[in-house]
Write a protein that binds this DNA or RNA. Sequence first.
DNA 1: ATGAGATTTCACTGATTACTGAAAGTTCAA
DNA 2: TTGAACTTTCAGTAATCAGTGAAATCTCAT
Lengths: 182, 182
Amino acid sequence: MNLPPLVQGFVLHFGEMGSRWGLNRTLGQMYALLYVSPQPLNADEITEKLGISRSNVSMGLRELQAWRLVRLEHHPGDRREYFSAPQDVWAIFRTLAEERQRREIEPTLSMLRDALLETVETDEEKHAQARMGEMQALMEQLTTWFTEMNRLSPETLTRLMAMGSRVAKLLELKDRLRTRSG
Amino acid sequence: MNLPPLVQGFVLHFGEMGSRWGLNRTLGQMYALLYVSPQPLNADEITEKLGISRSNVSMGLRELQAWRLVRLEHHPGDRREYFSAPQDVWAIFRTLAEERQRREIEPTLSMLRDALLETVETDEEKHAQARMGEMQALMEQLTTWFTEMNRLSPETLTRLMAMGSRVAKLLELKDRLRTRSG
DNA sequence: ATGAGATTTCACTGATTACTGAAAGTTCAA
DNA sequence: TTGAACTTTCAGTAATCAGTGAAATCTCAT
């Protein structure tokens, strides 16, 4: 691995975490490298800096693109493909959250929707179906909420988040106003 | 596998998803089984219903307890240990979110905090460090917000979530009130 | 059309992770 | 204190997943 110490530590950490995040080591390392790189890199540069095989880089780049975590660009007069990670951390967070939603939540939601349509006979199955209903309700609620929040600007989100649990106070305030005027 | 069709489908699906969620197949299946079970189960019952080895169940149960996803209880006059999944889906969601926070976010945050304390020389490293700073800022913000939200009751959270992006309206309302009174 | 530069595919191998069965450990009643 | 009931540990094996290199494919400039 051919990197300054600070960057190397970051890249190795992301490699380790990669597996916990449903990616794999190489993917984590590649992403970390692109994230801190001052300019886009081509596949050979990544190969060289990480000390892994060219083909591994090729596969990794495809997967990172599928995650929408890296962007492909071309430089005039250069046939090679260059890759960069989007700079806006909020955008990255949203992408990540959307992709996880799509990969981890949606399949389960659709399984649950199907399961809830089945007609069942035994008490055991009825109980199971009721539990699935609770799970589905919460997941739908979270999904809807998440979609809505994703429409807000980073500024608005930052303000909302900065308020933390004090947003609950706003609800009381709203209730009071409504009561007064209603 | 020795289960009614509806339950079996649910259990198998969670087995598949288990890996995407950083668990593994068996863990997913065991959790799903306990989640829909009308009463707590002991290790032998789980072994029998899932058709896996007794030792695998034993290890799986330890891990599910480490995730705080199942609870151990004893029945009077029975030496065996019984396991159940908490019933409250909100509680489950919080537990899951907290554990993922602990396993997936915190290690990265502490790595970033360390990296940001280093003194670096080259422009490349300075750029990398700046990028790490951005990442750290967002992660701290999200972490703080999440901790705060976790204090709210499910009722409050449900109300807030039901408002969706209309919470942003509350901010405007608040601004107006402050302007008027300030 | 040709071939040099660039990228991708894929069968194989190496590494990691999950699962099992046998043995050891624990707990408790008699 | 013995042993029956129950649980855990762990070494070995099976299954899965990641990474490589050679070959195939793609893509332009000539």
